[in-house]
Computed example of a mutant assay.
Amino acid sequence: MSSGPRTEQLSMQDAAPSPVGGLGVVFLVAQPGLETALLTEAIAAGFADAQLVPGGVEIAGGLAEAISANHILRRAVRVLWRVAAFRALHLAQLDKRAKKLAWLDWLRPDQPVRVEAVCRSSKIYHDKAAVQRIAGAITAAGITVASDAALVIKARIEDDLCTISIDTSGEPLHRRGHKTFVGKAPLRETMAAGFLWQMGFDGSQAVVDPMCGSGTIVLEAAEIAAGLLPGRSRDFAFAHLVGGGNEGRCPSRSPGYLENEEGGVRFFGYDRDDGAIRGAQGNAARAGTSAICHFTRQAVSDLMPPEGIAPGIILTNPPYGARIGERKLLFAVYGALGATLRARFAGWKVGIVTSDKGLAQATGLSLAPLGPVDHSGTKVWLWQGVIG
Rank of each mutant, 00 (worst) to 15 (best):
A15G: 04
T7Y: 01
A50Q: 03
E35F: 02
E35M: 01
A15W: 06
E41M: 12
G46R: 15
A15V: 14
G24R: 12
A44V: 14
D49E: 14
E41N: 15
A15K: 09
A42I: 03
D49G: 06
D14L: 09
L39V: 01
G46S: 10
I43N: 03
G24S: 14
Q51R: 15
L34V: 07
D14R: 15
E41C: 10
Q31C: 10
L10N: 11
T40W: 02
A15T: 14
G33W: 04
L38R: 09
A15D: 14
T40Y: 01
A48R: 10
G46D: 10
T7C: 04
A42H: 03
E35P: 06
A42E: 01
F27W: 10
E41G: 11
A15Y: 06
L10Q: 09
P19A: 09
D49S: 06
D14P: 05
V29D: 11
V29L: 07
L38K: 05
L10C: 14
V25R: 10
E35I: 05
Q31S: 12
T7E: 11
M12I: 11
P17S: 14
A45H: 15
L39G: 01
Q51T: 04
Q31K: 05
A45C: 12
E8F: 00
V25T: 14
A15L: 11
P19Y: 01
Q51L: 08
L10E: 02
A50R: 05
Q51S: 08
S18Y: 01
E8N: 07
A45F: 09
L34E: 06
A15Q: 15
L39R: 02
A30R: 01
A44E: 15
F47P: 06
M12R: 13
S18F: 01
L34W: 02
S11K: 10
I43W: 03
A15E: 15
T40P: 00
A48T: 15
A37R: 08
I43P: 00
T40R: 10
P32C: 09
L38P: 03
A30D: 02
P32W: 01
E35W: 03
D49V: 00
P32F: 03
A16W: 04
L23I: 08
F47M: 10
L10V: 07
V20L: 15
L39Q: 01
A44H: 12
L23E: 02
P19W: 08
G22Q: 13
Q31I: 08
G46A: 09
L23M: 09
A37G: 13
V26G: 00
A44M: 13
A16S: 07
